[in-house]
Design a protein around this nucleic acid. Structure first.
Lengths: 336, 336
DNA sequence: AGCTTTTACGCAAACGTTTGCGTAAAATTA
DNA sequence: TAATTTTACGCAAACGTTTGCGTAAAAGCT
């Protein structure tokens, strides 16, 4: 690797001059500028950003991204948003996986980011345990969390309560009154609880009594959707619609139905959540709640680079109708 | 951020001693070691890897990963492999997206890797144009390519010819003789061509005449699968099986069939390719060709870190049977 | 005790940059 | 032409580490 000194030697100037030319900081003649530029091109010079950032006041921005090893793939979309926007801003992405609730590994991720002294950290769906949170607090390291709230730090989330309310209302407006909620983690205070709440409120607002049997626990995964279908089958009466906690879970329900030779067409409406790629690729394509993942990534970068990430953001969601929730004439309109 | 000097000051030793203690390089008493260690813990010291790698002979490994913005999501699996194995080896992942055949952006990705002087580059599905390849050649930068062959550099791929042969044979052995090949790019010399070749050879070996109308061009995407189904419909005779170029394409075919009220169950066998997540989540679950993405990622890291990445590797594939290719009694056994 | 070996540390250079300061030379002005 | 300003550059320090070399002090030996 060629250094600034190599160029200086060839150009018969001091390294300082080379540096000034390459950084456009003035203080050289046009002639030497051209000379230095051509030489640096000839030598295929590449600045060593490590050395540079060590001394320069205007550091190069490196953004640390910590993701879980979650099966769900929406993090890809977020990272794409991070990358694209970071690219525009000439920032680098340092990526690290922290496993699933593997506190030790999360600690190592944090340490990594600190040692590489990144500009800030974007964590995606990462749950910080007490220890790691306390540890992080010791440093002056900006962090912005996507999808989950990390106490004391800004976050980018959606309003899960409202999203669930909207989705449930959408289903109700299509004539359904027996609506299952499948795949949320009940003890997940950040997401699960709020979604159950929004779902319940929508039902109540439409004078539909809440049937606890229709709220089926899960972990947002495909598998939990698949298993949940069996639970649905065992119900005294099959609901007419299912609100799935994620598109993956929705896919699981469809898969489970197929497995049990249950033909959902015209029988069981399904609402997904996420608008992940699978929601378009599955048959039937899913009506689903759109989470603006890409924008979340962009926004996170923006906040980190503005270095005023004190403001948490709650992004709006909308529903994309792909026809998997269809109109039904409720059989219960009168007697409830 | 605390530095080694801060520790030195508090411990009343020189920075050298602190460094030696922290790196276990010997030359200090047990007493000072303990003192320094506790102080460094108290101060929340974190080594600055930039400064360190600038001078140290045993640099910290940073692995540059360049991915396209491809819609297909298998890169996630590869990156996971890279990350997990890199984590074990204490390597860092610098991630960059290079768009789709955006040569300028690819150049910037390369420059980025050079400036951050990474240990080596892992490129996933990236097609290098002549210019960028020539450019890269100027540097002494190890690169290993996954999925595509980059002239002059080692690569990790599968044998597409053989994979297609195996898959086609699998279909034939289930009694099919009218087998469409859908979604490959004919002019893609690296993948498309070889898959067509393997498919053709398998047919020939089983004395099935090749019908060019059954080879339907595409770009491995969901959409091309969806569109291709219409092409299939227009054929004088519907094939009994489809070999899709990717799981995404297979999903597209299923989606297209649904769109046209064509019930594939028992009628149209489908073989996917990739074993991506969708192959399990779709209904019906797909019999598919398993690409060892995760292992590819691991292997790539291994080769970069061994810094002897001269050897290209062709990994074996296998077929996972999920029942989407079913037995049929060929109606053409006798008259062909 | 006197000698040699080992231990435990400090000094200073180095990595590849950037940047404040200093200063000859060139350019401008009177 | 002489005085003044500007230009164009070099010097050296700095960033936070690591590491070869040097050396007092301690330890071991006879």
């Amino acid at each position: 690797m060629k250094t600034i000194k190599d160029i200086a030697k060839v150009a018969a100037v001091s390294p300082s001059t080379v540096s000034r030319v390459l950084n456009n900081s003035g203080g050289y003649s046009e002639k030497t500028k051209q000379r230095i530029l051509t030489i640096s091109k000839q030598l295929n010079y590449q600045k060593n950003e490590y050395a540079s950032s060590l001394v320069s006041t205007q550091k190069v921005n490196v953004i640390g991204v910590i993701v879980t090893n979650a099966k769900s793939s929406f993090s890809t979309k977020i990272i794409e948003g991070v990358e694209d926007f970071g690219y525009q801003k000439d920032a680098r992405i340092l990526l690290a996986h922290c496993g699933m609730s593997d506190n030790e590994r999360l600690r190592k991720c944090i340490d990594l980011m600190l040692r590489q002294n990144v500009t800030g950290i974007i964590s995606i769906s990462v749950q910080f345990d007490e220890d790691n949170l306390a540890y992080l607090n010791k440093f002056d390291m900006p962090l912005i969390s996507i999808n989950v709230v990390v106490p004391g730090y800004p976050s980018i989330t959606i309003n899960n309560y409202q999203a669930a309310y909207q989705a449930t209302q959408f289903i109700i407006e299509h004539g359904h009154r027996q609506i299952a909620l499948v795949g949320v983690k009940k003890d997940d205070l950040q997401t699960g609880y709020n979604r159950i709440d929004g779902y319940s409120k929508a039902l109540m607002d439409h004078k539909i009594t809440i049937d606890q049997n229709l709220i089926i626990d899960g972990d947002f995964s495909f598998d939990s959707g698949r298993k949940s279908f069996e639970t649905l089958l065992k119900l005294p009466k099959m609901p007419t619609a299912v609100f799935a906690a994620s598109d993956d879970t929705a896919a699981g329900i469809i898969s489970g139905a197929y497995e049990h030779d249950y033909n959902i067409a015209g029988e069981l409406s399904i609402m997904g959540f996420d608008n992940s790629k699978i929601s378009e690729m599955i048959t039937p394509q899913l009506t689903t709640v759109v989470q603006p993942f890409y924008e979340m990534g962009e926004l996170a970068v923006k906040e980190i680079l503005d270095s005023k990430p004190e403001a948490s953001v709650v992004l709006p969601v909308n529903i994309i109708d792909r026809g998997s929730v269809f109109k039904t004439i409720s059989k219960y309109t009168s007697n409830n």
